[in-house]
């Protein structure tokens, strides 16, 4: 307070000139947070990047050469994408119609609570429960056999489908919440206007909602993809960690904590990050091909 008054008497001080550019005491509040991210996220990342170029054999690209020449290692990229892509797409495709339905409901809270449950359960608990529920003597097989849909128990565990189901169960709620918030963010009067002009439900969705939703859906896809992409616990517990579901995070984990080769583990982590960023950039790049503008409608 006093500094401001003094400054007024003597002309603009350094403090006032900074404040004019938006830097004052309040702006400095951002610093601890930035320092934390720089120290615990950016620095480890750069450190890992440096470390990945210092492999045990001494050459610069030794780790990367090893990764891309060993099918047991580079194959993990495709195994990860083969799980993460269909799961994310399926979750998004289920989430959109459900979000449209829930949007119309008056009492959404109970249903959303139930649908959100798996987020809190987490991948470990879902995998643990799946071992029971989908097991040969579990309720799932038992019920299907009692109804007569199955004659012998089907086994989804210890393979691709086990991980797939666990990722849908844990990933869907998150996708759904994001989609629901984007869907409810669209002004209902736009739909009413389209209906007044004679558009049926399908046309309303295609011509009004979809163009407005595309940006949000692209972001939802990216964030859900991130979740499905790091599938370590379920790939180990309900998958086949040595074969069909040997995802890239398992390779990285084994390099770090079983072989104690931190250089190789960092290299795998960098490859993992690069692949994931490529997907995000590609999806967000496609987004810019579509309509961008307000979804709330203009005020008359």
């Amino acid at each position: 307070m006093s500094a401001v008054l003094e400054g007024r008497a003597e002309g603009p001080t350094l403090r006032q000139r900074l404040a004019a550019r938006g830097i004052d005491g309040a702006t400095l509040l951002v610093l601890p947070c930035v320092a934390l991210i720089l120290g615990l996220f950016i620095y480890p990342f750069l450190y890992g990047l440096m470390l990945s170029f210092e492999p045990k054999d001494g050459s610069l690209f030794g780790n990367y050469a090893r990764f891309f020449s060993d099918p047991f290692l580079y194959g993990t990229i495709f195994k990860t994408l083969r799980l993460a892509f269909p799961v994310t797409l399926l979750n998004l495709l289920i989430a959109i119609p459900i979000a449209f339905r829930v949007r119309l409901m008056r009492r959404q809270r109970l249903l959303t609570t139930l649908l959100v449950l798996p987020i809190t359960l987490g991948t470990v608990l879902v995998a643990e429960g799946m071992l029971f529920y989908f097991g040969p003597q579990g309720w799932f097989n038992r019920a299907l056999m009692a109804v007569g849909l199955l004659s012998t128990p089907i086994s989804v565990l210890n393979g691709y489908w086990g991980v797939f189901i666990s990722l849908v169960l844990t990933g869907f709620p998150f996708t759904f919440l994001l989609t629901l918030s984007y869907v409810t963010g669209i002004d209902p009067s736009l739909e009413n206007a389209a209906a007044t002009l004679g558009a049926g439900p399908a046309a309303r969705f295609r011509e009004v909602f979809l163009p407005l939703l595309i940006p949000g859906l692209a972001i939802t896809f990216c964030l859900s993809f991130v979740q499905a992409y790091s599938v370590l616990p379920s790939a180990v517990l309900v998958g086949d960690p040595a074969g069909a579901t040997r995802v890239i995070s398992i390779a990285a984990y084994q390099a770090a904590f079983e072989e104690y080769d931190y250089s190789m583990a960092s290299a795998i982590a960098m490859i993992m990050g690069a692949v994931q960023l490529l997907v995000v950039v590609a999806v967000l790049g496609c987004r810019s091909l579509f309509y961008r503008g307000p979804a709330a409608g203009a005020k008359g």
Binding site: C33, V34, I37, L38, L40, F41, I42, P44, F45, Y47, G48, L49, L51, C222, L223, V226, Q227, Y229, S230, L232, S249, A252, Y253, A256, Y262, A265, S266, I268, A269, M272, G273, Q276, L277, V280
Partner: peptide, 19 residues
């Protein structure tokens, strides 16, 4: 800078961070 940790899977930055 703040968005990055939310866009990168924890397992990716977790390994260098743990190191």
């Amino acid at each position: 800078l703040l968005l990055l940790p939310l866009l990168v899977p924890p397992i990716t930055y977790g390994i260098p961070l743990a190191t």
